[in-house]
Design a protein around this nucleic acid. Structure first.
Lengths: 250, 250
DNA sequence: CGCTCATTTGATTGTTATCAAAAGAAGTGG
DNA sequence: CCACTTCTTTTGATAACAATCAAATGAGCG
């Protein structure tokens, strides 16, 4: 299985893949995307961008998973959204951006400079805007998950979304993907208690809709999962999505 | 009480007020903000911008309240966020923007043209960006409300936020404001059933933290409400906020 | 007045959180 | 390689919270 905390892709290659699978796709040559410096390594809980210190340097998440974490005084916390490799991490006013496991980040300023260069291709800008739009749309999906979905719907919806996102990066292996996050992290992401998330996962496993252990997730019955939570992809379909759907539906 | 469905402000005046109370305030002369055409009137449920028809003309919400509504097939729906006068309404991919009561909207293209004019003052652009940032921040607050707050916390947090937003527009009357939305709408906004919202409101009334009837909301014990849900204002403090806080705390 | 829509109430069920503890995995240092 | 610690997952029992169903009351409107 592809380990998303330690895949072998360079920052430029990652970004190129994202841009190529945006809803306004753009095939970038590596040198268009700026020259990235060395990547920094962080352990679980490492603060990538601290909260509320104004706009620092945006970072590119190269490997691993991260999240924007809001703490609520008493123990509660909400992870606003899951950030995956290829995502750009900006400073937030009230949330720290935190590595949810081992992660690598790179300074994203070279890329942003390349993007804002007057000579940058229009297609590149369009693709970037399309990715930003997809990000917004996923945030809306997250609102609906938290506001109106039951526990099993939330889990199904979240897993389908994550599979889809990783598929765009070529980081899935058919219906299987790597999700290096503890159940505690996932529970804070989708607004459930750890215990209840655990039981919900077990129920989905018993129904043979998914399989999950050790951060390895397999979507066993795609169509059934989609029916369960009424998921629909944000942005363009995943590269291998149609064939997968046919197999799952057969 | 000021009726936000029928206040007397012109589009330009509304926008000027918002810009003047952004975290990067800008005092606009009316003619800088473009020439608005006539406003359109809508009744409750009127579709201001239909879902998923690509980017149409953005509208300025002049009076009344609106919301981005996601329907879930079975009866469930989630209103992603509440839009108030002075908000710009854009097309969404999966949500319709709907008037939640009587509302007036105006074509916002003249304003956007004025904003994008190369000769537009830098301060105007900065203020506009600051408003956009505040919008993002409120969306994040909404995520936390839905994901991690109890019913009474959600209600308290939402009411404080709304009071704050209307305060910036000069549409509050001290601790009182007008919120022309049914409990059903509010319940879909903060992710509760109507019945439970109703009971939660009653509890808050019994505790004399708020008073609410006929769309007239009064914040009776501001400090206590803030303590209850750990609310903090997005963007700059409301024009009258400090003095109000002193009174409430006394 | 009679209609419709919104709010409120009561009773009940279902879902999810919480508490406490056991079992299992994974890393650490000897 | 093992003993130890620590973190994560799992289980059970219980309580709190919120949804649902059904119906009554109240408010606004033609």
């Amino acid at each position: 299985m592809i380990d998303i905390s330690a895949h072998g892709l360079s920052p430029g290659e990652l970004l190129a893949r994202r841009l190529a699978t945006a809803s306004a796709p753009y095939r970038a040559r590596p040198e268009e995307l700026g020259v990235f410096g060395p990547t920094t390594h962080l352990g679980a809980g490492g603060e990538i961008i601290p909260a509320g210190r104004g706009p620092g340097a945006p970072k590119l998440l190269v490997s691993g998973v991260a999240g924007e974490v809001r703490a609520l005084g008493d123990g509660r916390r909400q992870i606003l959204r899951l950030r995956l490799p290829g995502d750009l991490l900006y400073a937030c006013d009230y949330e720290a951006v935190v590595a949810l496991g081992r992660a690598h980040v790179a300074d994203a300023r070279p890329f942003l400079q390349a993007l804002n260069d007057p000579g940058a291709p229009a297609g590149l800008r369009r693709a970037w805007l399309a990715l930003g739009q997809a990000d917004q749309d996923m945030l809306r999906d997250q609102l609906v998950r938290l506001g109106r979905m039951t526990a099993s719907e939330r889990v199904a919806h979240f897993l389908l979304e994550t599979h889809h996102r990783l598929g765009h990066l070529g980081l899935t292996d058919g219906d299987t993907f790597h999700l290096p996050a503890t159940q505690e992290v996932l529970s804070d992401l989708i607004g459930l208690s750890v215990v209840h998330l655990n039981r919900t996962l077990q129920a989905l496993r018993r129904s043979e809709l998914i399989s999950l252990r050790n951060g390895r997730v397999e979507v066993l019955q795609r169509e059934a999962l989609i029916d369960l939570c009424d998921w629909r992809p944000v942005g363009p379909p995943s590269p291998a999505a149609t064939s997968e759907a046919e197999v799952a539906g057969a």
